[in-house]
Design a protein around this nucleic acid. Structure first.
Lengths: 339, 339
DNA sequence: GGGCTATAGGAAACCGGTGTCATACGCAAA
DNA sequence: TTTGCGTATGACACCGGTTTCCTATAGCCC
């Protein structure tokens, strides 16, 4: 037995005394097969350790079993969660996951992605935010005959090609909770303009305030860019306002960590003098001091659902498309004035 | 022009009036070609937007262009850094990256991985620690005729199939620096037993102490498991020791964050009463308070080098195999007694 | 017993590339 | 002029599967 030559369908056919086609029928579980023949062939397959060649299959079927994950998301935790979710779905199938981190600001972005999909002849691709919000890109994918599912923070697409989280509602509920604790001056750190997720979280904040009967105050809302430093800068502005907010909702955890720095520099204790809520529940949230109350995206199940939609287009409409994030309560929030 | 039927080599051959083989020669930049013919064919290729089918190529060449990344590393930052590094290398090649997160504790681990490699007929795989330390697994890969490169914290293999960081030396230098600042009681939080990286860091610590003329003290060394909680528990033990250490080296950042919690609970100020050094320079290091001095793995260049070794076996020996980590100095360290 | 249908399985072409080998041609040497 | 050789290109088989179409056999009916 040669070590480097894997058995092929021809070997199986020869050894079991049937034609290639019959072996192919066994592999594909064709119902028109005699039980005896099937067992005979299966025995030879097991004996040889035969595994069909996916490239040959892809060629003959004129489709392959590669799904691509394209992302430019800076949140490592999230990207890995997505990979994990996709893998849960495809683990026992013949699909494989091909990843492609890209740079949103590259001038050749579109060309690069088009080339990637064409070169690998991907069966489908999954887009992560923020790049999933790029409609031109979605157009390119469809143009290439590649099925597409987008993940996002809101509806961008029809149900068959979308998996989204309801950020708006989650933020609204978080704000309602803060208001319920007695907070009246609630600050907000927004995400970067032009991002769907940022917009949705902002709307959720505004709606939450309104529901609690609180008026939005422009001095208490600052825009950041989802990075730590911008949270720190936003914190400087918010905490120097007077009167100071007693609570701040930050559109992501990293900016919340920056805000925490600013508070610490000013000797403002969290949570007794300032409550903070973040968004994303990244690893950092549980590990800073105090542990951060934050909104958790159900990222793994979302990615698993997205992968299902990709590999099973028939079932795509019936699978869940909208997921609700929930609040993880940790130590960074208390009622105001509870020193 | 049909939308869903991509042009094939036959279309190109027909339209440019040459044989498939000649087109193939153009694609593969064969030197025996007449310049005129080449240009003629290239014009048709550009016109048609022809892209060779990788599956057909893979079949004919009896090799493919898929490289696998197998990992069970809990550090998202690191895994994504590796993906980024691999992609830098393969971006302009025909290779693609297929990822496979696995569960180290799964009883079917070996079988799963074998199946993954066989099913996709991977050209090569890259193993990340800690699973890269599993020699049985390396055996399986080689057995399957799949080239293999391992990343790790120390030599596990020959230069052609290894990319490692010199953790030991990095830790030694960090400890020397602490000692140079005047620290005499330096605590240590070790990684889990059986991990190469943990062992190397531990040895580096011991050697560093010895070089500084300090005696190791069993009361100042605690073993953790690289997780936040174990760092917290280790911190409780270390900070209740008397006399207390004035500095602690933690074998990774997450445990350092746990230690920081324990310090804060006891009202011990960092860095004035306790200096802390971590390892890995994950996102958390820069975002906790105070920002953590830590050892940074050059993870992206390491992964890029590993990918090079995979796709270019000839050059494998000449590429760098050993990388030195360096110390990122932030605010968590000062000289002892500098209140 | 002949004709019909259903079922199991095979032969050959095909998917889109690459390898091997043959061939046509031009040109220098004999 | 013939031989010889290197260069540029083509014909054809092949990689390992799937599909189409066809055949062989068995069982059934009249």
């Amino acid at each position: 037995m040669k070590r480097d030559a894997k058995p092929t369908i021809n070997d199986v056919a020869r050894l079991s005394g049937v034609s290639k086609k019959t072996v192919s029928r066994v592999i594909n579980k064709s119902p028109l097969l005699n039980q005896t023949t099937r067992e005979k062939v299966e025995a030879v397959i097991a004996d040889l350790g035969y595994v069909p060649n996916p490239q040959a299959r892809a060629l003959a079927l004129r489709r392959n079993f590669l799904i691509g994950l394209i992302h430019d998301n800076p949140n490592a935790q999230m990207v890995l969660g997505v990979q994990e979710g996709i893998l849960q779905t495809i683990r026992d199938t013949e699909f494989a996951l091909v990843v492609r981190p890209v740079d949103r600001h590259s001038p050749t972005l579109m060309e690069d992605i088009r080339h990637f999909i064409e070169q690998q002849r991907l069966y489908g691709v999954l887009l992560l935010p923020p790049i999933s919000e790029n409609d031109g890109l979605a157009e390119v994918c469809r143009d290439l005959g590649c099925t597409l599912v987008r993940m996002g923070s809101a509806r961008l697409d029809d149900d068959a090609h979308l998996v989204a989280s309801n950020d708006r509602q989650a933020v609204r509920e978080a704000v309602a909770w803060l208001a319920g604790l007695g907070h009246k001056r609630i600050g907000f750190i927004a995400g970067p303009a032009g991002f769907r997720s940022a917009f949705e979280r902002e709307q959720g904040f505004i709606e939450g305030l309104a529901e609690a009967g609180l008026a939005p105050d422009a001095a208490l809302a600052v825009r950041g860019d989802y990075k730590f430093e911008s949270g720190y800068e936003a914190g400087q502005r918010l905490l120097d306002a007077s009167p100071r907010p007693t609570a701040v909702f930050s559109s992501n955890d990293e900016m919340a960590a920056g805000l925490l720095h600013a508070a610490r520099e000013r000797g403002i204790d969290v949570p007794t003098q300032l409550s903070i809520i973040g968004f994303d529940d990244t690893a950092i949230a549980a590990h800073i001091w105090p542990p951060l109350t934050t909104v958790r995206w159900p990222i793994v199940p979302m990615a698993a659902a997205a992968a299902h939609k990709l590999i099973d287009p028939e079932g795509a409409f019936t699978r869940q498309s909208l997921f609700l994030s929930d609040l993880v309560r940790r130590a960074s929030v208390t009622a105001p004035g509870s020193s």
